[in-house]
Structure formats: C-alpha cells, structure tokens
C-alpha cells in the first residue's frame, strides 16, 4: 500500500475464519479477506476450489439450496450478515450479483430494470431510471430503440450488460460478479472489463475469474484460492494482496505457478 490518497481505506466486506459447508462437505475453509471500497477485488484459482461458493456467501445466495451453512463471520460495513435478525433479501438488495451465464428475465429490456426497481418500492421516474442504468452499463445506445423487445433477443454480451444494468438500477454498494465474461467473446469481454473500470467509481466490485489476464488487467486486489487441507478437499485462500504483487512477486510458490500458467 504505497501511494494511497486515502490513508485509512474503508473495507466494505470482511471475512473472519470463514468456512462454508454443503451439508457436511466443507467446500471452503480459512478465508480471511477484506474487500476495499471502490476497488475491484478478483478471486482467482483453479476450477472447483470454491470461488463461486465464496462469492455467493457474500450475499447469502448459497442458502437458497438446503443444507448449506457457514462458520466464522462475514461482515458488511461492520455488520454480521449471517446474524439472526438479518434478512437475506435485504443483504442481496445491498450486495448485487451478476452471474456466469447471462440470465435476463424473460421480459422486455425495459421491464428487466423496471421490475427490479419496482420490487424495491422505486416510485420515481421509471423511464429516467431505465435510461440511466442502461447508460451506466454502456448499453443504452445499442438498445434505446428497442426497449420493449425481450431481453433475450440481445446478444450474449449485451445480455450480460443488461444484467449489470439491472443490478446497478437498485444502487447496491457491492456488485459480485461470477465469471461474468466466461460465456462471451473477446470483444464483449473487453467491453465488460472497461465497464468495470467505470463502475468502480461508484461501486465496490468483487469478481471471480479464471482468466489470469483479466485479473491482472482489471483488478486492484487479487485473492488466490486453491484446494488444500485434508485430502485437498477444501478450497482456501492461499494469498491475498494487491494484484501487482500477486502477479509480479507472489509470496506463495503455488500462486506463482498458477499465474504463470505452470499449474497442474
């Protein structure tokens, strides 16, 4: 942390000795990390090491499926999001999500955003909100003449930006992205990356990726995950640092192997 204007960074999400279980299977263990405000934090690591599991714990998405539980603590602005009195619906309202496969609602482009805003009681000018959200997601120019066509009529990259527009329409503080570009072509991928740079001015972003270049190009911090522990079954965070450091002077040999493509 060399030249930081803000001497005391604000951490939006923090985890303490986090373990995540699917039934009795411990998928993720020993995660201690801090997600800094208005930064992009990337989570990298080989397939099946628990990246998605960890990301989905941040907005309590895992618990949609029976049998999942966590040990340890995840705080959002200092508040324990797994505390008894916390409503997961409220958590997901504040911590939005963009998924691996673009999943717009089978509604019009306009409705994709309007519906999302409406369920949270938005009463303002809907046209304006839709336009703003689409502008911010760099999609407006491409869809402004066909707002009432199905969101599914768009190309994959456009669909993903629609999903981003939908997520930011309700102004979350954090946007979680689970390999948002893995189903897209290189040009669409680049667009998403550029968009992330814009978005981080207003939002905090956590992105899962297994594209090393993407992590190196687009993120400020990188968390390296890897299977380890008893029989290498649980994923854990073996290194967490500024992206520069992870990619140039990694502390862990396994990180070095992984980021230089010598892994496996």
């Amino acid at each position: 942390m060399t030249t930081n204007n803000n001497p005391e960074p604000t951490y939006v999400i923090e985890t303490q000795d986090l373990e995540i279980y699917y039934g009795t299977f411990k998928a993720v263990t020993d995660v201690n990390m801090k997600v800094e405000q208005n930064k992009i934090t990337a989570i990298i690591g080989p397939s099946g090491c628990g990246k998605s599991t960890l990301l989905r714990a941040f907005n309590r998405m895992n618990e949609l499926y029976a049998g999942t539980s966590i040990k340890g603590k995840i705080t959002f602005n200092g508040q324990d999001i797994y505390a008894k009195e916390v409503d997961p619906v409220e958590v997901r309202y504040r911590i939005g999500m963009v998924f691996q496969k673009p999943n717009p609602f089978p509604k019009s482009i306009y409705e994709n955003i309007a519906w999302t805003a409406r369920i949270h009681g938005y009463k303002g000018n809907m046209d304006e909100l839709v336009e703003n959200s689409l502008q911010q997601a760099a999609l407006w120019d491409e869809v402004k003449d066909k707002l009432h066509q199905s969101g599914l009529s768009l190309s994959g990259g456009q669909q993903q930006r629609l999903c981003i527009a939908r997520a930011i329409s309700i102004k979350p503080e954090v946007i979680l992205m689970d390999e948002p570009a893995s189903a897209l072509d290189p040009i669409a991928t680049l667009k998403i990356e550029e968009l992330m740079q814009e978005l981080k001015k207003n939002y905090t972003i956590v992105i899962v990726t297994h594209n090393m270049q993407q992590a190196a190009r687009a993120s400020d911090y990188t968390a390296m995950m890897m299977l380890s522990g008893e029989g290498e079954r649980s994923g854990t965070m073996i290194e967490f640092n500024e992206t520069k450091t992870i990619f140039t002077r990694p502390a862990d040999k396994r990180t070095e192997d992984y980021v230089t493509g010598r892994f496996g």
Binding site: L64, V89, G96
Partner: peptide, 25 residues
C-alpha cells in the same frame, strides 16, 4: 434455476420470485 437466482440475486422475496418470475415463465 438461473432465472430464480437472477431474481433472488436482485433482492426479490420468495413470493415475488414465485408469482412474478416463475409463474409468468
């Protein structure tokens, strides 16, 4: 499932997901 997740991920309640997303689909 991805459609339900999309709605839950936007902070929709169970009833909203069931009645406004799953039923229309």
């Amino acid at each position: 499932r991805s459609l339900r997740e999309a709605a839950y991920g936007m902070g929709a309640t169970k009833l909203e997901v069931a009645v406004q997303i799953v039923v229309p689909a």
